[in-house]
Design a protein around this nucleic acid. Sequence first.
DNA 1: GTAATCACTACTAATTTAATAGAATTAGTA
DNA 2: TACTAATTCTATTAAATTAGTAGTGATTAC
Lengths: 147, 147
Amino acid sequence: MRLSTKGRYAARLMLELALHYGKGPMLLRDVAEREEISEKYLGQLVAPLKAAGLISSSRGAHGGYALANAPKDISLCEIVQAVEGNLALVECVHSPKICSRVNSCVTRDIWGRLSERLTEELESISLQDIVYQHRRKQSAQPLTYTI
Amino acid sequence: MRLSTKGRYAARLMLELALHYGKGPMLLRDVAEREEISEKYLGQLVAPLKAAGLISSSRGAHGGYALANAPKDISLCEIVQAVEGNLALVECVHSPKICSRVNSCVTRDIWGRLSERLTEELESISLQDIVYQHRRKQSAQPLTYTI
DNA sequence: GTAATCACTACTAATTTAATAGAATTAGTA
DNA sequence: TACTAATTCTATTAAATTAGTAGTGATTAC
Ligand code: FES
Ligand code: FES
């Protein structure tokens, strides 16, 4: 029951865009460098994020990516859902066809409720919250000098 | 972020044992038949459940499996954890070594808190709860006749 | 001693994950 | 217009995980 790199990288990508919010489009190359993630792989993650309306892009010279909305209006749920698909903990919650006995199976109900709780929890975290926590953490960190 | 068949089957296996609680050991064959799950595959799931102290077994003729404790004293968390290992949504929460930057990464903190919430939620559900919900559902079901 | 049952280990096909690679497309600018 | 910087799209792949199957060995009741 692990979140794949898609979801984790997408969250970090969106955090970078949020930190850069209001400063024009950000290069994928810079995101990749700052987060130490393969640029090509990130290139695949932006497609679903854009399709979900979370980011906008501009091509060509001086292009790049930017948040489509303010950080406070983007939830972690939307980000994860965009790249990972629906968040049900078990498949038959959303696709009843794949299990016979969906009508009698009580564990399905339980996984369904659990999935809802998880979704609610993710919905309650905005990108702005993550930015705040990031800044708080940064200022609490001891300084690191790069020579 | 899906629960694998291990966790799902283990929950159903434990429900069957709970329904049979107090009636002596139950055959794996019967569990497999009632839940329509491969007996051999279930055979692999009982090992970790036993190792976790959730069930007891007796070998030989008239052997089988039984709950090691009352259903009210077994949580869904214990069951899932036994067969799936630790429930962290991302690996670096429990094994900081695998990620560099664990000290500065704010998303790790978020995944960590989320994992805790999920664990709490699973801890709050006992096998007895599942039995109650199962019985309620059964009695609400229209009767099905097997000819 | 034999039948029934759990216990253990090895193997495997299919799927998913986590990338890498490269060509195509678009946009700014000299 | 030609050049360059950037996104976009598609294909390929190695490794890991999942979801089993199969078979043999150990133990116990009768
Ligand atoms: S119906 Fe899908 S797990 Fe029970
Ligand atoms: S430290 Fe592991 S995801 Fe950031």
